[in-house]
Design a protein around this nucleic acid. Structure first.
Length: 425
RNA sequence: GGAGGGAUGGCCGAGCGGUUUAAGGCGACGGUUUCGAAAACCGUUGUGUCCUCACGGGCACCGUAGGUUCGAAUCCUACUCCCUCCGCCA
């Protein structure tokens, strides 16, 4: 949530910054300013009325204790009280309207963010193949580790079903990623709930604007999480932390659920765009001075997984027109898929600054005693299904076997490759 | 799902509709004392928001949201969460 004080002081600057996202929000901002002015005028009147009410009611109390008659004052106060009710209604309504508008405004892009994505660097070697590498869904079918037909019977299109060594590979990836982040990068592992309240979704910025994206339960109105970022960031809701408790580093494996409304027909094959997928997510809660540095570190921690798995990837700095709703600055990691001959996003690493912290009221106390909003950062570390696909493609052999990257072998019962069932005796 | 009990400041814990600007205690911080410390004593001790250049002042907040009343931590309604018991259950 954007600070309303910024809108009061510098609305044209805010409008210009948000325009970098490719959206003209000047009408919305002007609307908020008008509502805010009306709200403050009414608030002033309401508080004046309350002050009067408080003092007179006090006097009535004194008179009554003395056994004196206060009926005249009471009669007068009935009118004042009625007026208070009216104005309170107005105040509440404009306050709610302002809040509703603020919740729909995306975060302001960081000053360093420009239009258009930039490739910062490429890492790892794109291997040469003397055969045609199959896309992972074709290889996966031959290897009998992926079965989208069966998944479709159960759940409809765009759901994954892994079997045999496929399921083992997915499990191995999850454990491997978690171990690296926990043991090497100092994260606290969390296993959060998959179903959360709407307020929890609002807290990270997924609601109210993108509610179409999420699955909700009919009877209880709970939302299936689209990413573990949602429960992890909300862990510090309504807290005032001390500065030396920061940074908090949370890592979680969860399945993620997305309706992908509006992207029907995109990436219909394979593990790239499913309604359900697995992800290891990293969340950092930092103080305001540290978040920039933490963002770079978080990126490095996510990259580490790709390096250890020996997958070729590139690092993108996202342009202002391509960033998510809550992010002020975002790096994407894209891995090369030789079967699809495409770069595919496997991690999105964002600094949200205080945008989410305002929504969840998460603060810390500085040594000087000031109470400040925390900064929240999140990164995939990494998207498991897409890494599964990347391994099946990058480590494919001409016999359509899949070599297991060395770092993963101990998580795969020491196995060195996944073999075609028709070649196994 | 059923029957009860509960939610008050950082923590514990009082609180008859009007001397409560939320008692008292603990903790924390500052001071006195001391060579230093402990103890004792004295003082301070939440959050938000609005007005003001500022000094300062107002208003709100006792789980949440409504209601009754001149006046609500206190009475009423709904909801959330926690505890106890019963039922069901991986």
């Amino acid at each position: 949530m954007i600070d309303i004080n910024e809108i009061r002081k510098n609305s044209s600057g805010i409008i210009a910054s948000l325009a970098k996202r490719g959206e003209d929000l000047s009408d919305k901002i002007e609307k908020i300013k008008k509502l805010d002015e009306a709200w403050r005028t009414d608030l002033l009147e309401m508080e004046e009325i309350r002050r009067e009410k408080n003092t007179v009611s006090d006097e009535i109390g004194k008179l009554k204790r003395n056994g004196s008659d206060a009926s005249e004052m009471i009669e007068q106060m009935q009118k004042v009280s009625a007026r208070e009710k009216e104005i309170k209604k107005k105040v509440d309504e404009s306050r709610a309207a302002i809040n509703q508008e603020l919740l729909l405004l995306p975060n302001i892009p960081d000053d360093s963010v420009t239009a258009g994505n930039k490739v910062l660097r490429e890492q790892g070697e794109q291997k040469k193949y003397d055969f045609e590498v199959l896309p992972h869904w074709e290889a996966g079918k031959i290897l009998n580790i992926l079965d989208f037909e069966k998944a479709a019977v159960l759940s409809g299109s765009q759901f994954p079903l892994l079997c045999g060594d496929g399921a083992l590979l997915e499990r191995a990836l999850i454990n491997f990623m978690l171990d690296v982040h926990i043991e090497k990068h100092g994260y606290l592992e969390i296993m959060p709930p998959y179903l959360v309240r709407e307020e929890t979704m609002i807290g990270t910025g997924k609601f109210p604007k993108f509610s179409e994206e999420s699955y909700m339960t009919v009877k209880d109105g709970l939302c299936l999480i689209p990413t573990a970022e949602v429960p992890l960031v909300n862990l510090v809701r309504d807290k005032i932390l001390s500065k030396d408790e920061l940074p908090l580093k949370y890592a979680a494996f969860t399945s993620c659920f997305r309706r992908e409304a509006g992207s029907h027909g995109l990436d219909t094959k394979g593990l790239i765009r499913n309604h359900q997928f697995n992800k290891v997510e990293l969340v950092n809660i930092t103080n305001q001075e540290e978040s920039g540095r933490a963002h770079e570190q978080l990126l490095a921690e996510s990259e580490e997984i790709l390096k250890l798995l020996q997958l070729p990837y590139r690092v993108l700095e996202l342009g202002s027109d391509d960033m998510g709703f809550a992010a002020a600055k975002t790096y994407d990691l894209e891995v090369w898929m030789p079967g699809e001959k495409k770069w595919r996003e496997v991690s999105s690493c964002s600094n949200c600054l205080d945008f989410q912290a305002r929504r969840i009221n998460a603060r810390y106390r500085s040594p000087e005693g000031d109470i400040l909003f925390v900064h929240t950062l999140n990164s995939s570390g990494l998207a498991v299904g897409r890494i599964f696909a990347a391994i099946v493609e990058n480590f494919q052999t001409d016999e359509i076997n899949v070599k297991i990257p060395e770092a993963l072998q101990s998580y795969m019962k020491g196995r060195k490759r996944i073999k075609r069932p028709d070649t196994v005796k």
